[in-house]
Simulated scan of single mutants.
Amino acid sequence: MTTTITETGWTTKEIEISQRVLNKAYQRETETLVAEVRHKVNSMTNMEHLWQVHDILSAKRYDLDGKYDAREPMLIFTFAQLLKEGWISLEELGGLESAKLAKISSLSKI
């Protein structure tokens, strides 16, 4: 079996691992957001609370749209941010080249 390496240095196996980890992290983060919004809506007592929920959702949408960048040149940075924020663990990235894991780990500490 031949391993294909892209121009950016990611193997097809690493891309598959990356996609799986990104999907899992996105699911975790969005489930957490839904629970937070549900809690806020359930405790809502006035219009000001409604606008606060709106503001939270607007900011989070902007954040999520930029955070989950799956372009190969950006994956190291994407994973470092997700690791720093606690949405993924280094173990979940098992199967990536050790140099990539070291970069992700180092960047997550900045």
Rank of each mutant, 00 (worst) to 15 (best):
I5V: 15
I5K: 12
I5A: 11
T8K: 15
G9F: 00
T11L: 08
K13I: 14
K13S: 15
E14V: 06
E16P: 02
E16N: 09
E16M: 02
Q19H: 14
Q19N: 15
R20S: 12
N23Y: 10
K24D: 10
Y26W: 05
Q27G: 12
Q27H: 13
E29H: 05
T30P: 06
T30H: 07
E31A: 13
E31M: 11
E31F: 08
E31H: 14
T32W: 07
T32R: 15
L33N: 04
V34E: 11
A35C: 00
A35L: 09
A35I: 05
R38W: 07
H39I: 13
N42D: 15
N42T: 12
S43T: 14
M44C: 11
N46C: 10
E48A: 10
H49P: 00
H49Y: 03
L50E: 07
W51H: 09
V53N: 06
H54R: 13
H54N: 12
L57A: 04
S58V: 03
K60V: 13
K60I: 09
Y62A: 11
Y62N: 07
D63K: 01
L64F: 11
D65S: 15
D69F: 05
D69W: 01
D69E: 08
D69A: 02
L75Q: 07
L75M: 04
F79I: 09
F79Y: 12
A80C: 03
Q81E: 10
Q81P: 02
L83E: 07
K84F: 04
E85H: 07
G86M: 02
W87R: 09
S89C: 00
S89E: 03
S89N: 02
E91M: 01
E92M: 00
L93Y: 07
G95W: 02
E97W: 09
S98H: 07
A99P: 03
K100D: 05
K103I: 01
I104A: 05
L107A: 06
I110T: 13
